[in-house]
Nucleic acid binder design. Structure first.
Lengths: 127, 127
DNA sequence: CGGAATCCTTCCGGATACTG
DNA sequence: CAGTATCCGGAAGGATTCCG
């Protein structure tokens, strides 16, 4: 295919973003991933026990159906959350943490301890 | 002050968001706070040694001046980063971590270990 | 009950230009 | 050198409606 042409009309991108090693930082990527509005709250709630969809919806209080579904689906795709559909009528869907999800709770709780001691006062998670 | 009037032309907000206990979760708030595009990278870089402004600007490569300044100022306001102005000419500004900032690196590194083992392969931070 | 689809607003963050 | 000021596009996320 005409080899390495590097013509003036270059096909290469006009430097959209040089993230060659930006998101290569794993902990930065993880913070970005879980730093959205709801992911951490869902993980912490599911860390206690499994929850059904509407159970999460009421427990979090303020999340929209749209965002609850999106958050759960993304966490599932990341291998942190399990989704179990019970084919009853009406349907029942139960969410929980995977082994990886539970293993994440360990460093999370270390960070939580730091947050409680160093940041805002009166901190509870609503669990 | 005409007591609790609650007039029809109420001055109160139309329910902006019921975050009574949403951001009350300290670890969720911390993730939100550090889950932006640049904060973690800046913290990690400053964890190695102090840096001058343009030093950070070149090291991160992709951050705009606007966001670098904003990120540093917010981290400073949170008591995680120090800002030292040397009144030379041309001016020189040095950034570093506070004691609190360094203490944060401990639980961060635990999370970093988890991220390296469980998430994306080939992870380095560019330090 | 547990969503999906659509619309609409807010805000994060990049690009650019200028300054002490 | 170390910022500030302004403009602007895209992504995040809420509200509402409809569906199996």
């Amino acid at each position: 295919m005409s080899a390495t042409h590097t013509s003036v009309l270059a096909t290469e991108l006009p430097r959209p973003v040089p993230q060659t090693e930006l998101d290569a930082c794993p902990v930065s990527a993880l913070f970005r991933r879980l730093g959205d509005r709801w992911s951490m709250l869902v993980i912490i709630l599911l860390g206690g026990r499994t929850h059904r969809y509407n159970e999460l919806h009421r427990a979090i209080e303020g999340i929209s159906q749209r965002m609850l579904t999106r958050t759960l689906r993304t966490l599932e795709a990341d291998g942190l959350v399990t989704r179990t559909v019970h084919p009853t009528v009406p349907p029942s869907v139960e969410y929980g943490l995977t082994d990886r999800g539970r293993s994440l709770l360990v460093p999370i709780s270390a960070l939580a301890d730091w947050a409680v001691e160093n940041q805002n006062p009166s901190g509870r998670c609503g669990t």
